[in-house]
Design a protein around this nucleic acid. Structure first.
Length: 861
RNA sequence: GCCCGGGUGGCGGAACUGGUAGACGCGCAGGACUUAAAAUCCUGUUGCCUGCAAGGGCAGUAUCGGUUCGAUUCCGAUCCCGGGCACCA
């Protein structure tokens, strides 16, 4: 009987399903004396295209780990589910009129069937879908918890809103405003990224992805829901340290959070027409350069611009602001290769020198960062420098590089003043009164102390991270459990009313007005407040796709719970996630949002840890055979269904792991997978007699033969370490198994015991064939319940070591010698070697360097 | 421009803490089996030079230089590729 992978795979997939082989027992039935291991895949968005060969790569890796850990005696959590809300199903609905729910179900069924055909050991009883009412009920519930919380800065954690201290003497309206201004979820008129083609707003994190696809994104002020993730900036940054995550992901998150430390400095501003005074704060990371501040510059959107603009400048300023407003962020950054701006006509008072300096506006200053205003230090900031030269503003040097000679200083000062040099590094302060002669770091400390003492500024930290824009103008997403009243106030819907479901409708087209399609469905929108009976309108925006994926890993742990999203005790047992594998495209989206939600839940006492994901690993991309990214237009897409049909799931799994380290980007190769299929055939044939279909005569009950047994133990060592060391380099484990099989072909009689252990090693990689052979060897239980073999360290030692003999570092001879031979023996052998003698003949031996079991190097002159 | 990765045969990739560069697989070449082919099995396979042969020599891990008895591995400079950030004050 030949190796018939199709039949074998079908047989075992059915067996696993019927016997619930991979079921993780419910918490009360779990043997809690065993250690736990939570290994998770980033769940897929079930698109209409079905599975892509990239999916099985990460899934196979986690599956190997899950199967291995089970055999090692762990309680393993290995679930799968669906990120089921999303734009694709909605656009399909617009085209076909088919409800996104129906379409999504179809796609999920297809995905599930495809995943099952790969033999992945998920506990399907724990499957979740973010678009299920039972699931998004809890997404809405968590939103309400966020909505009903504020951030207590003194305790540095979120607290329930009822604990917020409300100032005395506020009227109802003011109280409402005060509370809302502290909620972690808040509604605000903010400049948003509007994408007209998609008919929705996008979060900052989503913009690059969509602009890459060719969509335009423009700035627009809209009233939107936001989550106050910025309150967590410091914790999101600091807690990265303790995570076992890839360096670059940490780096990306760090940059995204973008912490910078410096000072806020107050400037008095005067409008010379009416002598009205106002004050602004600027943020700077280089307060030491304050003596070089020669102008003030505001973002065009800055609140004070109108007040500061003198009559003569009014038209020019208005025109400039209109232009700036029209530009998208992209244009604003791209087109401004050359700086633009306008004078307001007002002047500022330098807080240290008291000098009058001009106030201008320019779009190189961002309204959304810091205070929307900066002090221009053209001597030591490239951007200010460029701007100052364009507007002929004064340039003044206040820092010189360290280790600069006296003669160079004169030239440096001249060059700076003329704008030929702009030194933005750290150095020594000059022309700076009480800072003169101090190093940059000392100057910074000293000037901040001075500013604080004089009440003209203070130490300050800024982050690039913005609050998370949380609403979308879409149909296919979680509705907000919020209702609005005529007077402009709003309130949450009571928890008992959850889930708040989507209506059945016939048209999914967006309203065109910047509102969600839900806004047009009167029967759904109009409602009453169950608490008071007041008439109300439902919030018509829906949550972004990221909402459901922020917490799905918690629902798997306790999927049937009707009282809470996840029992806290169960959470405590299984979390944090031991290993999480997915693509690196989620670096600042899913992975930062999920950390944020988890931290809120932690603050509110619903979960037990600071961070949800202990170890993260990113699988690399699989390219087409032509070495470029797979795409329909290139026609280089490989369909996993075809691959499984032709070579089997085991070959596919094995090949994807053999291609290279998991994180590497590597091209698909049809020839390559043939090789792995050949390997499995070799495994089959060396054990199974093709005529009888049973183990061949070469498989004996004898005790293991010594040399083969030693090789087996080395193989056990290598495979075990490769699976367990966290590097995800399964390619080398597989190559060792190949070496082992090659050796089997040179052996006439093979002990059954050896074969059994080897098949266990193979089973996490190629589970179907392993089960089949395991059964043919006379075992009655699934191989999943076999114990992982232990290796004997004594047996992994070599008896012989190949010693290399070098003369002056060049290889001249080699010889197999007893393992652990002493230095003297090695050196004598080396000096006695014919070829070595040739090279040392007539020369003087200076020294001999010997490394046990490795080499002897004779240095001659 | 700045910050991370990374450059090893014809290809995917191995190489422990500095100690045999190229494991394993693909491809290719040769052989066995076969009437023949496929499949399978065996052998060889970094390049150049040399030898009838066993063998031997030289060069070689992007480039140049350094440290070292010895460098794919450590250090410096340069080039190229991939990713991230990009008026963030």
């Amino acid at each position: 009987m030949k190796y018939n992978f199709t039949e074998i795979e079908k047989k075992w997939q059915k067996y696993w399903e019927e016997n619930e082989t991979f079921r993780t027992p419910d918490f009360n039935e779990l043997d809690k004396s065993k250690p736990k291991y939570y290994v998770l895949d980033m769940f897929p968005y079930p698109s209409g295209d079905g599975l892509h060969v990239g999916h099985p790569e990460g899934y196979t890796a986690t599956d190997i780990i899950a199967r291995f850990k089970r055999m090692k005696g762990f309680n393993v959590m290995h679930p799968m589910g669906w990120d089921a809300f999303g734009l694709q199903a909605e656009q399909y609905a617009i085209k076909t009129g088919i409800h996104p729910k129906i379409r999504t179900m179809e796609c999920i069924d297809r995905f599930r069937q495809q995943l099952k055909s790969l033999g992945l050991s998920y506990d399907w009883k724990r499957e979740v879908s973010t678009a299920d009412e039972d699931y998004f009920k809890w997404t809405q519930w968590i939103f309400l918890k966020i909505f009903n919380s504020y951030y207590d800065e003194s305790k540095d954690k979120a607290k329930i809103i009822s604990e917020l201290k409300i100032p005395e003497g506020l009227n109802e309206k003011e109280k409402f405003e005060f509370i809302n201004s502290h909620r972690l979820a808040y509604l605000a008129e903010v400049p948003v990224n509007w994408c007209p083609e998609l008919g929705t707003v996008l979060s900052n994190e989503e913009v690059p992805e969509q602009t890459e696809k060719g969509y335009t994104v423009v700035r627009r002020n809209m009233k939107q829901w936001n989550l106050r993730i910025t309150k967590y900036a410091e914790r999101l940054l600091n807690d990265l340290d303790e995570l076992d995550w890839p360096r670059n992901i940490k780096e990306i998150q760090k940059n995204w959070i973008g912490k910078s430390e410096g000072a806020a400095v107050k400037f008095k501003l005067v409008n010379p027409e009416n002598n009205n005074e106002s004050e602004i704060e600027v943020f700077t990371t280089r307060p030491d350069t304050i003596f070089g501040a020669t102008y003030i510059i505001l973002a065009p959107e800055h609140k004070l611009v109108d007040e500061l603009t003198v009559g003569m400048q009014k038209d020019a300023v208005d025109k400039y602001r209109k232009e700036a407003e029209r530009k998208s962020d992209l244009e604003r950054t791209e087109l401004s290769k050359s700086k633009t701006g306008e004078y307001t006509g007002s002047y500022g008072i330098h807080p240290v020198t008291g000098e009058k300096i001009p106030v201008l506006i320019s779009d190189y200053v961002l309204a959304s960062y810091g205070t929307g205003a900066v002090m221009g230090v053209p001597g030591h900031d490239e951007r200010d420098n460029e701007f100052a030269r364009k507007f002929s503003l004064k340039i003044f040097p206040v820092v010189v590089p360290e280790n600069i000679s006296d003669s160079e200083i004169i030239k440096f000062i001249e060059d700076t003043k003329e704008g030929n040099v702009c030194f933005s590094g750290n150095g020594i302060s000059i022309y700076s009164d009480f800072l003169n002669g101090l190093k940059t770091s000392e100057s910074i400390d000293k000037i901040i102390d001075w500013l604080e003492k004089e009440k003209k500024g203070y130490r300050s930290v800024n982050y690039k991270l913005r609050d998370w824009l949380f609403s979308r103008q879409r149909f296919w997403g979680e509705p907000f459990p919020i209702i609005h009243f005529d007077d402009g106030t709003f309130t949450d819907v009571d928890e008992s009313e959850l889930p708040l479901t989507l209506p059945d409708v016939v048209s999914y087209k967006s309203s065109g007005t910047g509102e969600s399609p839900l806004a047009t469905i009167e029967s759904w929108v109009n409602t009453t407040d169950k608490r008071t009976g007041r008439k109300a309108r439902r919030e018509t925006n829906t949550m972004p796709q990221w909402a459901g994926s922020c917490w799905y890993f918690l629902r798997y742990l306790d999927p049937g719970n009707r009282n809470v999203f996840c029992d806290k005790e169960i959470e405590k047992f299984w979390m944090p996630i031991n290993l999480y594998i997915g693509g690196y495209e989620h670096a600042v989206l899913h992975l930062i949002y999920a950390r944020f939600w988890y931290k809120v839940l932690f603050d509110l006492g619903y979960v037990n840890y600071k961070e949800p994901i202990n170890k993260l690993f990113n699988q690399g991309m699989i390219l087409g055979e032509d070495g470029v990214k797979m795409s329909k237009s290139r026609g280089n897409v490989i369909n996993p269904d075809d691959v499984i049909k032709e070579f089997g799931a085991d070959s596919m799994r094995l090949f994807e792991m053999f291609m290279g380290p998991l994180e590497a980007t590597k091209p698909w190769s049809t020839k390559g997978i043939e090789g792995l299929n050949r390997f499995l055939n070799r495994v089959w044939r060396v054990i199974i007699d093709e005529y009888t279909g049973e183990p061949g005569k070469n498989i004996t009950d004898e005790e293991p033969e010594e040399n083969l047994n030693k090789l087996l133990h080395r193989t056990i060592k290598k495979v075990t370490e490769d699976i367990d060391d966290g590097d995800m380099k399964f390619n080398t484990a597989i190559s060792y198994m190949m070496i082992f099989v090659n050796e089997l072909y040179k052996t006439d009689r093979i002990s059954k015991k050896i074969i059994g252990d080897f098949i266990i090693l193979l089973s996490p990689f190629a589970p179907h064939i392993a089960e089949e052979i395991w059964q043919k060897l006379g075992n009655t239980e699934s191989i999943q319940f076999a114990a992982w073999p232990e290796y004997d360290p004594e047996l992994t030692k070599e008896d012989m070591a190949t010693i290399i003999f070098q003369v002056n570092g060049k290889l001249r001879a080699k010889k197999d010698m007893n393992y652990d031979s002493d230095v003297k023996t090695l050196e004598d052998e080396a000096l006695d070697n014919e070829n070595v003698k040739k090279y040392i003949l007539g020369k003087q031996i200076i020294k001999i360097i010997t490394v046990k079991n490795k080499m002897v190097n004779i240095v001659v002159k």
